[in-house]
């Protein structure tokens, strides 16, 4: 095998190898949107975060605008504190409501933003005041059963 041929092939190999790495990073891993884009952090307090996980998406009107960066428990109020990393391009009003939602019955858990009407926007380090906790299916079912039972009991009395 001639040297120039080897050089050429190694060059082609390394080039397509790097291209596929870039493909995985950008097209599959969607690096472009997140890790490099400038972002700001806000905190949101929830009574219960349900099945929310790290790096879960934050969506506004269905568009992914950020990720959950950290989840801790406030040892005083026993609330869950979720730190959200929001893309710098997007601004949200101070009275935005953050709720924990599930896409479909079995889908992923994400944080949804419902934008309010406040003129002021959220800045780095701000805390979202209005939040809506996760809907816990078991509690819902439990409540439903309780209601049914009590209405049945009332019906018996009558």
């Amino acid at each position: 095998m001639q040297r120039a041929t080897i050089d050429l092939w190694v060059g082609i190999f390394v080039a397509i190898g790097v291209i596929s790495l870039v493909f995985l990073a950008l097209k599959v891993g969607n690096l472009m949107t997140w890790s490099n884009a400038p972002s700001y952090r806000v905190e949101a307090h929830f009574d219960n975060i349900g099945g929310l996980k790290l790096r879960a998406p934050v969506k506004a009107a269905g568009v992914v605008v950020g990720r959950v960066e950290n989840i801790t428990l406030d040892s005083v109020s026993y609330e869950a504190i979720a730190t959200l990393n929001i893309d710098q391009r997007y601004r949200f009003s101070k009275d935005t409501i953050a709720s924990i939602l599930t896409s479909g019955l079995l889908g992923e858990v994400y944080v949804g933003f419902d934008v309010g009407g406040d003129e002021e926007t959220l800045k780095d380090g701000d805390t979202i005041i209005k939040t809506q906790s996760a809907v816990i299916l078991e509690k819902l079912i439990g409540q439903f059963m309780l209601n049914q039972a009590s209405s049945l009991a009332q019906g018996d009395h009558k």
């Binding site: 990073a25 097209k27 599959v28 891993g29 969607n30 690096l31 949107t33 997140w34 890790s35 790096r55 998406p57 992914v64 992923e108």
Partner: peptide
């Protein structure tokens, strides 16, 4: 795919 795959 892009929504689920995380770069890091």
């Amino acid at each position: 795919m892009q929504a689920a795959v995380d770069f890091r």
